[in-house]
Amino acid sequence: MQNKKRMYLLLLIVIAVALTAEILFAHPHHHMIWNVIPGADIIIGFLGAWILIFLAKKIISALFQREQDYYDDRGGEHHAG
């Protein structure tokens, strides 16, 4: 738990430094909303990570994960009758 708190603190410092640098020094070459608004990448990163975790851990895992012996010959012959 202590470790987790330290990790959060470290990551928040990194985010704060990056955000400050972006606000002070960045001159975006492209003009989409995520290039212009400072800190938009933080939202993309955080939400994107949760979307991927949800997709992988909840949907793909539930639909497509099987036991290790799923492809073993015994199973195949059983299916073939």
């Binding site: 990790m7 959060y8 990551l11 928040l12 990194v14 985010i15 430094v17 990056a18 955000l19 972006e22 800190g39 990448d41 933080i42 939202i43 993309i44 990163g45 955080f46 994107g48 990570a49 949760w50 975790i53």
Partner: peptide, 11 residues
């Protein structure tokens, strides 16, 4: 990239 990765690491 730093913001993207740090935010994802929080998640």
């Amino acid at each position: 990239y730093v913001q993207l990765f740090a935010a994802a690491a929080v998640a």
